[in-house]
Amino acid sequence: MVNDTRARILQAAKTLAESHDAIQGVTISLESVAQAAGLTKPGLMYHFPNKEALMLGLVDHAAQQWHQRLHNHTGSEPAELSAFERHRAYVCVATTAEVSRADYWIFSDALYHPTLAASWDGYLGPWFDTTGLGASARGLLTTARFCADGAWMSEATGVFPADDLAEVRRHALALVDSAETPQEETSQKETTQEVEA
């Protein structure tokens, strides 16, 4: 029952954020969230005693949802996968997930409140880990992730969305494939291409 009420509160807060015409300047109050969730303000404050606790709960819930999407896509925890498998999963999920302006607002709010970043680090950090890889592979994986980040944020905000997300996904996955190709093999291919030219 407690978890159901918390989930209802978080969904109400997200719905309120989504109802704004613009991301910039989104504000929600404990009173407005309580009303949207069908609770009294003291009833809401039993679960989230102040605005910061509510925001922390929202961010934690959103970050956990991204982790769950990635887990559902792969059927595995990040520690059980290679960096390449984890990044492939993120590219696929980020370019197909149903996202909204509220998702973007919850994510971007961490920029202005560092305490909110901890949940993103905790849930998504293991998916983005590139420890032990060379600089080239790390750079390619990060580039693929940035493509996926841009894709879902663009879709969520409606600002310059892609004409064809499938093509964005294909190119981002090609970057992951390039990162996984051993550097010696890549160098040999480049040398062969130069000789043939």
Rank of each mutant, 00 (worst) to 15 (best):
V99A: 13
V159A: 09
M45W: 08
T74Q: 07
D60G: 13
R169V: 07
L141V: 00
A137D: 03
A135L: 13
H171E: 14
W105H: 11
A89H: 07
T74H: 01
A117G: 07
F146W: 07
A148R: 04
V93D: 08
P114F: 09
H71A: 13
H73T: 13
T115R: 12
A62T: 09
H67I: 00
R69P: 00
S76R: 11
L54A: 05
D103K: 07
H171G: 12
A94S: 12
A83G: 05
V168P: 02
Q65P: 00
G158M: 05
A79P: 01
L58A: 04
N50E: 15
D149I: 01
Y90C: 10
Y123L: 02
D60I: 04
F84N: 08
T142L: 05
A97R: 10
G57E: 09
A63T: 06
T143M: 12
V159F: 10
G125R: 03
A94Y: 03
H171T: 12
A148F: 06
M55I: 12
H113P: 00
V99H: 06
A148D: 03
S82P: 13
L70C: 01
G75L: 09
R170M: 08
W152N: 13
T95C: 13
S76Y: 10
A162Q: 09
T96C: 12
L133C: 04
Y46M: 15
P114I: 10
R170I: 07
E52H: 05
A151T: 02
T130N: 11
A62R: 08
G139E: 04
G75F: 06
K51I: 15
A62Q: 12
Y104N: 15
K51P: 01
R169S: 10
W105D: 11
L116V: 09
G122N: 10
A144G: 02
R86K: 11
D163T: 14
S154W: 00
P78N: 06
R169E: 13
G122S: 10
G125Y: 00
W66P: 08
L165P: 00
V93M: 09
T115P: 10
P78W: 07
I106Q: 09
L58G: 01
S100V: 08
A151R: 04
G43H: 14
